[in-house]
Design a protein around this nucleic acid. Structure first.
Length: 358
DNA sequence: CATACGTGGAG
DNA sequence: TCTCCAAGTAT
């Protein structure tokens, strides 16, 4: 079945004009705002993004503001969104724009693609939405919709499958309204042509779709990759001084939860972890200001990342053991704090803190 | 190319 | 409770 491209575009864009989601970043064509919205939207649902986006634009209205942002403030603003390297890369890219493009966000696709944190999808999205570049922005939605339109069975988990989808979309995209074309397909994908429900009754593309009203639709796209989390076991040490402040450390600048703050964590195997749960003392304490003679098991919790599952036993130094520490022990990476509102904390630490204040 | 990288919503 | 998924990118 051959698709009439002009008619397809007309139907799709007419639907978009009537039904498009009223998103805050769609009020502007400022590439900076489009960029921020696209980065935040990676692997994140739109409803989650909106309040973060509003706060971000208010705090950093221009690229220059972002380039000069303070790292901790930026991370704090990103707290809870996940994939924190996105925030670090945003600032790095803003600095690149200052230095390499005179502070003006580039309009050329390859220039955009050169920026830190921007890959093929985001570059095409920004180029098409902000600069009318005729480039398909191929995200999960477009992959799903396209796979159903053409009954494409290539496994989207494999990088080499990309060209099949790209070829089809290049043949369909509107050269007059490429940005709206991309966003229209994203909206169709997120509101109608969903992973486990195709809803062809309300789809403006049903006439063109090889899998319209077919029970097969939900089996597309084909995706093989499945993730399995690794179980990791920790004791988290809640150490309070006589002022009621907790001892926190900054995590390394690379890897999981880079640069975020944490209660000291002691990694252990499952057997040791279970021993701690049953009240036994921790075998190997980390390098702390003073040794802790007496600890008590408080409670346990779990936290699931995309690739790890943390089992955390929260351990408190009992009140009699509250200790003071010499000021010179504390550095930029170690501190005592009662108010957590000023430092970036990730999921596990937030949960631990809530547990302590229960 | 496979894996690391967060979190919250939906069924 | 469990599994999959959501506007991906870096390495």
């Amino acid at each position: 079945m051959m698709i009439n491209t002009e008619k397809f575009q007309a139907d799709l864009l007419a639907w978009y004009d009537k039904h498009k989601k009223p998103l805050p970043w769609r009020l502007s064509r400022d590439p900076y705002k489009i960029w921020i919205s696209e980065i935040m939207s990676q692997q994140t649902q739109v409803e989650t993004v909106i309040p973060y986006y509003e706060r971000f634009i208010k705090k950093y209205p221009t690229i220059k503001d972002l380039a000069e942002a303070e790292d901790a403030e930026l991370l704090k603003l990103w707290e809870g969104l996940g994939y924190y390297s996105r925030a670090r890369n945003l600032k790095l890219a803003a600095i690149e724009v200052q230095e390499n493009f005179d502070g003006v966000f580039p309009s050329d696709l390859m220039d955009i693609l050169s920026l830190k944190g921007i890959g093929p999808y985001t570059a095409a999205a920004i180029a098409s939405i902000a600069f009318d570049a005729v480039e398909p922005a191929i995200d999960g939605n477009l992959l799903r919709v396209t796979s159903r339109l053409y009954r494409i069975s290539e496994d989207i988990s494999l990088g080499r499958s990309r060209k099949v989808f790209e070829e089809k979309l290049r043949g369909l995209i509107s050269s007059e309204r490429p940005g709206d074309f991309n966003q229209a397909l994203m909206d169709i994908g997120s509101t109608i042509c969903k992973p486990k429900q195709a809803n062809c009754d309300s789809c403006p593309l049903a006439d063109y779709c090889q899998l319209a009203f077919s029970e097969e639709a939900v089996n597309f796209p084909v995706k093989t990759k499945k993730l399995k989390q690794k179980d990791l076991y920790y004791a988290a040490l809640a150490l309070q001084n006589s002022s009621g402040e907790y001892y926190l450390e900054k995590r390394p600048s690379t890897g999981l939860l880079a640069n975020m703050w944490t209660f000291p964590l002691v990694e252990m195997n499952k057997k040791e972890y279970e021993a701690v749960l049953s009240g036994e003392a921790i075998q190997s304490l980390p390098d702390l200001p003073e040794s802790i003679s007496r600890t008590a098991f408080l409670d346990k919790l779990t936290h699931i990342f995309s690739h790890q599952k943390w089992h955390i036993a929260v351990i408190q130094a009992i009140p009699e053991d509250r200790f003071e520490v010499a000021e010179d022990f504390l550095t930029e990476d170690k501190l005592w704090l009662e108010d957590m509102s000023a430092i970036p904390l990730a999921g596990p630490q937030v949960k631990i803190f809530e547990l302590l204040n229960k």
